[in-house]
C-alpha cells in the first residue's frame, strides 16, 4: 500500500517492518503485563490494613447478583432517556436553526449567527448549570436543555453547510417550476442536505450520548452516578473499581456501536451517490460535489469525519 510517506515496501523494508512490529508487540505486551500485575497486587492502606488486589474475586462477586444488574439497568435507562430526549430536541433545533441561519432577511440571519457562535463557544456543563439554577427545572430537564442547545447548534451548522454545498441549479430548478422560496428549501434543498449530513449528525449523537455523563456534575442519577455513587455507597467502596469498569464497558460498547452505524451510513450514502453504471463524467461530477461539501464543512469549522468537537 502506497501512502504519502512510504512507497510500497520491497522485501527488505517488509522484513524490517516485520521485525519492528514484533518488537512493538513485545513492548506493548510487557507494558500490559506490568499494568495488570500492578493492579492485581494487594495494597497496604495508610492504616496498615491489607486490601486484596483489583482482580480478587471478593471485588467481583456482586456481578453475579441480579439486583446489581437491575440497578445498573435503571441507571443506564436514565442515561438513555436523557440521550433520547436530547437527540430529538437537538435535531429539531438544528433543523430550525439551519432554516433561520439561511433566511433571506438579514434581520433573522445575523442574530442567529450570534446565537450560534455563543452556543458553540460555551461549555455544555455551564449551560446545564444555567438552566438548573435560573429556571429551576430539576437536573433531568437541565441536562436535556444543555444537550439540546449545544448539539442543536452543531447540527444546525452542519445542515447549513449541507444546504450551502448543493449546486445552485437545485434551487433555481425549484424556483423555475413555480415552488416558492420556502417550498424550494423544504422540498428540494433540505432533504438533500439532510441525507448528505446524516453521517455527521449521527457522529454528533455519539458526542451527545457521551455528554449525558456531564449531568453527573449537576446531580442527575445517570449511569456513572448510579454505579459509582449510589451503588458504591450501598455495596461498599470495595466495589468502586468493579462498578467503574462495568460503567466504562457499557459506555464504550454503546459509543462504538453508534460510531460504527455512522460509518455504515456514511459508506451507504457514498455508495448511493455513485451508481454502478456511472460514466466518467458523472463520477467527476460526484467528486466535485464531495469537494464542495467538504469546503462548506471547513468553512463551518466542522470535520467531515464528525465528532471533532470532542
Amino acid at each position: 500500500m502506497t501512502n504519502v510517506l512510504y512507497d510500497t515496501p520491497g522485501p527488505r523494508a517488509r522484513r524490517l517492518s516485520r521485525i519492528a512490529s514484533i518488537v512493538g508487540v513485545v513492548v506493548i505486551a510487557i507494558g500490559l503485563v506490568a499494568l495488570i500485575a500492578a493492579l492485581a497486587a494487594p495494597r497496604i492502606t495508610a492504616a496498615g490494613a491489607e486490601l486484596p488486589g483489583v482482580f480478587d474475586p471478593s471485588r467481583w462477586d456482586i456481578l453475579g447478583d441480579r439486583a446489581v444488574w437491575r440497578r445498573i439497568g435503571a441507571g443506564l435507562l436514565n442515561t438513555l432517556q436523557m440521550a433520547g430526549a436530547g437527540a430529538v430536541g437537538a435535531v429539531v433545533l438544528g433543523i430550525l436553526l439551519s432554516f433561520l441561519r439561511t433566511a433571506r432577511s438579514p434581520w433573522i440571519r445575523y442574530p442567529v449567527v450570534v446565537v450560534l457562535e455563543f452556543l458553540r463557544g460555551m461549555p455544555v456543563l455551564l449551560m446545564m448549570l444555567f438552566t438548573l439554577l435560573i429556571f429551576s427545572t430539576g437536573a433531568y430537564w437541565a441536562g436535556v436543555t444543555g444537550l439540546v442547545l449545544y448539539n442543536g447548534a452543531i447540527i444546525g451548522e452542519a445542515l447549513r453547510a449541507g444546504i450551502a454545498s448543493l449546486p445552485r441549479g437545485q434551487r433555481e430548478a425549484g424556483l423555475a417550476i413555480g415552488l416558492g422560496p420556502v417550498r424550494t428549501r423544504l422540498l428540494i434543498e433540505f432533504p438533500q442536505a439532510f441525507r448528505q449530513m446524516l453521517p455527521i449528525i449521527i457522529a454528533q449523537l455519539v458526542v451527545l450520548l457521551k455528554d449525558t455523563s456531564l449531568a453527573y456534575a449537576i446531580g442527575y442519577n445517570e449511569l456513572l452516578r448510579t454505579t459509582t455513587n449510589q451503588m458504591v455507597n450501598y455495596y461498599g467502596s470495595r466495589y468502586l473499581f468493579t462498578l467503574f469498569f462495568v460503567t466504562f464497558a457499557i459506555y464504550l460498547t454503546m459509543n462504538l456501536l453508534l460510531s460504527w452505524i455512522a460509518r455504515v451510513v456514511a459508506r451507504r450514502t457514498d455508495a448511493g451517490r455513485i451508481p454502478k453504471g456511472s460514466t466518467p463524467f458523472s463520477r467527476r461530477a460526484e467528486k466535485r460535489a464531495a469537494a464542495r461539501r467538504e469546503r462548506a464543512l471547513d468553512r463551518a469549522g466542522l470535520e467531515a469525519g464528525g465528532g471533532a468537537d470532542a
Binding site: N3, Y6, S17, A20, S213, Y216, L224, N255, L256
Partner: peptide
Amino acid sequence: ISPVGSLRGFAVVYTEILRNTPLTLVLF
C-alpha cells in the same frame, strides 16, 4: 501512519477507546 503493524494497531485501539469514553469517566 507508520508501516509497523503492531504500532498501528496500538494507535487504533488507543484512539478508539479514548474517543468513545465520556470525558466525565476519564476525569472520574
